[in-house]
Design a binder for these strands. Sequence first.
DNA 1: AGCTAACCGAGACGGTACGTCCCGTCTTGCA
DNA 2: TGCAAGACGGGACGTACCGTCTCGGTTAGCT
Lengths: 191, 191, 191, 191
Amino acid sequence: MARTRSEDARQRILDAALRRARAEGYGKLTIDAIAAEAGVGKQTVYRWWRSRAEVVLEALRENARTIPWDEKGNLEADLRAFLRATFRYASGKESTAPVLRGLMAEAQLDPAFLPHFRVFIEERRQILRQLLLRYASKASEVTVDMIFGAMWYRMLVGHGKLDVRFADTLALLAARQVLCPDRSETLCSKR
Amino acid sequence: MARTRSEDARQRILDAALRRARAEGYGKLTIDAIAAEAGVGKQTVYRWWRSRAEVVLEALRENARTIPWDEKGNLEADLRAFLRATFRYASGKESTAPVLRGLMAEAQLDPAFLPHFRVFIEERRQILRQLLLRYASKASEVTVDMIFGAMWYRMLVGHGKLDVRFADTLALLAARQVLCPDRSETLCSKR
Amino acid sequence: MARTRSEDARQRILDAALRRARAEGYGKLTIDAIAAEAGVGKQTVYRWWRSRAEVVLEALRENARTIPWDEKGNLEADLRAFLRATFRYASGKESTAPVLRGLMAEAQLDPAFLPHFRVFIEERRQILRQLLLRYASKASEVTVDMIFGAMWYRMLVGHGKLDVRFADTLALLAARQVLCPDRSETLCSKR
Amino acid sequence: MARTRSEDARQRILDAALRRARAEGYGKLTIDAIAAEAGVGKQTVYRWWRSRAEVVLEALRENARTIPWDEKGNLEADLRAFLRATFRYASGKESTAPVLRGLMAEAQLDPAFLPHFRVFIEERRQILRQLLLRYASKASEVTVDMIFGAMWYRMLVGHGKLDVRFADTLALLAARQVLCPDRSETLCSKR
DNA sequence: AGCTAACCGAGACGGTACGTCCCGTCTTGCA
DNA sequence: TGCAAGACGGGACGTACCGTCTCGGTTAGCT
């Protein structure tokens, strides 16, 4: 019965949010600035999103092209391709990594945002989980944690780059972990 | 010639900061509140620290008892002990995890804080690195990333607990990864 | 062309406006609230009136029963009756005074409303003017100003009540002023 | 012990408030604009005043030069002089009248402001009351209401000017009313 | 033993962003 | 096809904290 939501305003808000988050850093992003840049009243932002984090998350989702990678026929190669593509997406010239870091930060500071962020994270986990399942009878959640954990850890702490070398090493170690005979470690003694 | 720094004020500030960070969440922590709770002027906080994050980091360092763990004689067991102890520290009744999450968040939003936090992180990495070096001729940085990465990832996203089961699985997989013969994965074909 | 509903909506709007103005005070009255309470779209309010003030003014006019008073045969008595009736209207249980105060306020803040309000005021002046003309060859506009001025002044500032005593004193003084020989004051010397 | 209130900021706020109230009309005055023009944070305004009305009232008090008038030796002449001076103050080139009208309006819309405004009004009443007491054994509060009431009524409704003619007529009628023998009106019959 | 400079608690300051309220206009879909 | 419903762009509100500054009072440690 009432006027319907303006898809135009929605797009302008999402665009403005992502543009400014990339330009000035997520930390400097403000709702005021998003609304101003989108040419929108602040209320129109608050009507549909609860916080800058939710706006940016939705913008990112909208924006995120599915990352494609070639299937190579063995676990390590596939992982390598997947991680290379993923890292390229994060570190590319559109620099998504800083935005992701901002969202992860917000998820820590704003309890209301964490569940939304968790859903986003789970979507990515699912992709990796299915990749692993092609080669292992059952994928360990912990393996997923280790792969994505390593990626996020580097991205957040910044002690190492998300480059091809890291992708390849990660792929190698993860594959070795998955495919290794279960008790091989018992053969090893302390040096 | 001049009056010297008040050690008493310093302690009260650190205590107040950690107490309130634990009580109300790091996100709700403000310098005003720290100063008020410590019975201290705001200037006294700003005279010695640059931000709430630095106060809390120092408080955490002061507070952190070194985590001891028994040495078991093989990599997996040692890792298991180390991780169990670490998780117990984070998730224990003093709930340090939320504070750590807050600091990680701040490191993303405040570029000036990131280097300080990175030092803190590096200290922990060094401990784990040396543990690994007891069993492997050279420890892969990526293995460290995967272990701590998995831990932080779970802590930050909250999709799984930092419990004994997780510690044990992580230890198992990490050990397997380290000790597995290098090319074992080539034996595996796609399912 | 379905104007059938219009008159109904008009009445509901006027009723809602006056009801809420009396209930919560004119200052808290909003167009949104009027429309909601009337079960009407905001546009329907704006179609017929320019502001909340015009709605309330019209509601008041609609509502205002002509104040009757007995004619007594001399100026003071007539004034007394007129003022008693007027004050009773303003201060009565329906408490019109607060609404009148609100309209006077709006007339100060909204230049577009002032002319409308002035017409309303002039209507009341005309009644008093004609009362005076029954006893004086020509009624002084200033006398009207003094009588209604005193009333409004008390109503607005609230330093005294609009009670019977005030009505009577006002009637006495006004009558004295009107009927007094013109130069009587020259006989008086400073005390 | 703490930093003391800045007299400089206080003056800048009062000046800015009065300047803008006069320039753009009291109705268009905003706290934001006052703070901006004064070069002050909004909080500094709110720390010392509750609303724009209180700021403007204080500014007016600070600014109001005592209105002097010559004493003439009889009531009518004195009143004439007093009212002429008062009207000149209100209607003069600094146009205080619009500001006074704004304050009167605010007193109607903001219950918290009314008491403050009443004090201001009472101060003016006291001056007039004492003028009357020079010529009458006891000054009627109602006479004061009628004189100031007439002035405010004209100022607010704007149906007539606050000019010399009005001042003189008001003085004449008020004097007549005060000095007239009490029962003179009984001599008059209805026309 | 007294000076004096730096520190102390307190909190006012100029400022930014918040999230809310309401304005007056515009748009939709139902009756 | 007129109207209720309510989304829209906009502007001001009053609040919360930021990081800096000023205040009077308190100590140390050098003369």
